[in-house]
Write a protein that binds this DNA or RNA. Structure first.
Length: 185
DNA sequence: GGTGGGATTAGCT
DNA sequence: GCTAATCCCACCA
């Protein structure tokens, strides 16, 4: 079990998005294996398309947690990428519950394992990720590990829920997994 | 099985 | 004022 540090993120965003598949995300004693990610740089679908107070973290950091609030009810968690001045982040969209499953099911109000974190809003709810986690450096409250798991077949597609820059195939997922978001498996 | 709308607020225009 | 990197439930077939 090797902990992933800052340097992992100081690279091309798409590369980081692909390599995050299969890694283990740990928050508050709960662990999930990342099964679906999306890359965002300064493209038109990204918050970093314009530099604002919210997107500033994507420009100025790498290996930091970027949490944003969406649709008036949900949070989504990202890890910032690329060196300072070059904006980027990887959205964690879905995972397979590994540890603390009972706690996550309770927070989500579900019973089936595939309903725990098969979507970005669900994943944050399951792990208890909220506004207060925004800006934290990876490795403290929010940790990532490489446990040697090897991803079988990787699928890729357009990103979900965006209006612009639809031509980019920047969504990555573990093919055939029941733990990815409903869209395309 | 599939679709349509409502929830609810920050951030931009 | 409007829309958003979403989710869930009611309703129809």
């Amino acid at each position: 079990m090797k902990q992933i540090g800052l340097d992992f993120f100081r690279r091309d965003t798409v590369t980081v998005a692909r390599e995050l598949l299969g890694k283990v995300l740990v928050v508050d004693g709960c662990a999930v294996r990342i099964m679906e990610t999306e890359a965002y740089t300064a493209d038109k679908a990204s918050h970093a398309f314009t530099l604002t107070q919210r997107s500033e973290i994507m420009y100025e950091t790498y290996g930091h947690v970027y949490v944003y609030f969406i649709y008036g009810m949900y949070f989504c968690v990202n890890f910032t990428t690329e060196q300072e001045g070059s904006p980027g982040a990887v959205l964690i969209r879905a995972g397979e519950p590994l540890q603390g499953v009972a706690k996550m099911k309770e927070r989500r109000g579900v019973t089936r394992r595939e309903d725990v974190c098969s979507g970005p809003g669900k994943l944050c709810q399951a792990l208890g990720i909220e506004r207060r986690h925004n800006g934290l450096e990876v490795g403290n409250e929010v940790m990532l590990f490489d446990d040697g798991y090897v991803v079988g077949k990787m699928g890729r597609s357009r990103r979900i829920g965006i209006r612009d820059a639809k031509h980019l195939l920047w969504r990555f997922f573990v093919k055939g997994s029941e733990f990815v978001s409903g869209e395309k498996k």
